[in-house]
């Protein structure tokens, strides 16, 4: 079953002679449960593709169906709900709110989902346990290491049980050892059925995914099974 369908999706910034074609019309299908890496040099359009995938940006032309729904025609509030319930985001710079504890950061998406307080608490602790942070839940971000902060961010991304987890350079700010433990969490989540798409520069990271989509000049130039997927 196709979770993501890009039908000749393109993105242009600016207008007239200054128009920059960030994404040429591309068509792409990603099925539920896939573990994808998007790679490519900077300016290749992979970040633009990611923003459109994450419903943070709208395509200039073409249609984008997420789980069968044409999200490119939805209103702002409907998109906010899609981001809240269907999507989870992990960023390179973690983007945790400094004034909140780890627990409160993880509860934030459920606040916007209007879940009852008791439910938020239990779900947030389960998510934090899942990423291996059961014991530091009352620390603030500045009291946590980079790896720990990224775990909090992952817990926050999965706490509303999204179908699709989007990670933008999730290991970009971490050392290789920590990166490995973060990648293990993604692999776990994928094994449990969550669709994971990550943008990365790191070849080694990309090769741990099942599928590698390579962007160049706003186009998909290569779409291949990763060597790692054969051994799993």
């Amino acid at each position: 079953m196709a979770l993501i369908e890009f039908d000749r999706v393109s993105k242009a910034y600016g207008s007239g002679e200054l128009t920059v074609q960030a994404l040429r019309p591309i068509s792409l299908t990603i099925r539920a449960g896939e573990y994808c890496a998007i790679v490519g040099p900077s300016g290749s359009g992979k970040s633009t593709a990611m923003a459109i995938l994450g419903c943070l940006d709208r395509p200039t032309s073409g249609t984008y169906r997420l789980d069968g729904n044409p999200v490119d025609t939805m209103g702002a509030n409907a998109l906010a709900e899609v981001r809240n319930r269907t999507l989870g985001f992990v960023f390179q710079q973690f983007h945790l709110l400094p004034q909140l504890t780890a627990m409160e950061n993880v509860m934030l998406p459920m606040v916007y989902a209007n879940l009852p307080k008791a439910k938020r608490r239990s779900r947030a602790s389960r998510a934090l346990e899942k990423v291996g942070l059961g014991n530091r839940i009352h620390n603030r971000p500045n009291q946590l290491s980079g790896g720990q902060q990224q775990r909090v961010a992952i817990a926050r991304a999965i706490v509303n049980r999204p179908q699709l987890l989007l990670a933008d350079e999730p290991t970009g700010a971490l050392d290789s050892h920590t990166s490995q433990s973060i990648m293990a969490i993604f692999a776990d989540l994928n094994r449990e059925g969550m669709t994971v798409i990550m943008v990365t520069h790191d070849r080694q990271v990309a090769e741990q995914c099942d599928r590698i989509i390579t962007f160049h000049d706003g186009q998909v130039i290569k779409d291949s099974r990763a060597p790692g997927s054969l051994t799993r």
Partner: peptide, 16 residues
């Protein structure tokens, strides 16, 4: 701005 962006990414609406 970043906080606002993050809040929007995890589902905050304009009204929120």
């Amino acid at each position: 701005t970043q906080e606002i962006g993050l809040r929007k990414a995890i589902g905050a609406k304009g009204a929120d």
